[in-house]
């Protein structure tokens, strides 16, 4: 087994592993970590595949991976910030596990700030 293939397979398994964790775990932090693991898997695969098959050094996948890492960092930052806000609001860092029908019952009376002012007694 060539090392390229090994890395590629490792990348693929990281992706799968991350996917499993994403579905399995309820805590949002774990889900965010899972997404990151999946991302690393994709990046590893990208670099490994670029190295294999071609004779010359190919810079394009490396550029892609760097771009991808930047994107992943921003996404992670946003996700973490959202998680904190959610925990502040609900006290829990899990997804509100409601079916859409139940959710429709629980929607705030008026989610917008324009409408919220006259919302006091209408609940």
């Amino acid at each position: 087994m060539s090392s390229d293939l090994f890395y590629a397979l490792t990348g693929a398994s990281l992706f799968t592993l991350g996917l499993y964790a994403l579905i399995k775990h309820a805590h949002i932090l774990r889900k965010i970590l899972a997404i990151n693991v999946m991302g690393s898997g994709v990046f590893l695969l990208l670099v490994a595949l670029a190295a294999g098959g071609q004779q010359a050094f190919d810079p394009v996948p490396h550029a892609m991976v760097i771009t991808g890492i930047v994107v992943a960092i921003s996404a992670t930052a946003l996700a973490l910030a959202l998680m904190l806000r959610l925990r502040e609001a609900s006290g829990l860092a899990v997804l509100p596990d409601t079916s859409p029908e139940e959710l429709s019952e629980q929607l705030p009376e008026a989610p917008s700030d324009v409408a919220s002012k006259n919302n006091g007694k209408n609940a």
């Binding site: 996700a79 959610l86 609001a89 609900s90 997804l95 959710l103 705030p108 989610p111």
Partner: peptide, 10 residues
């Protein structure tokens, strides 16, 4: 804002 919107966003 609010739990529903944040949860939905997440």
């Amino acid at each position: 804002g609010g739990v529903d919107a944040l949860g939905a966003a997440m």
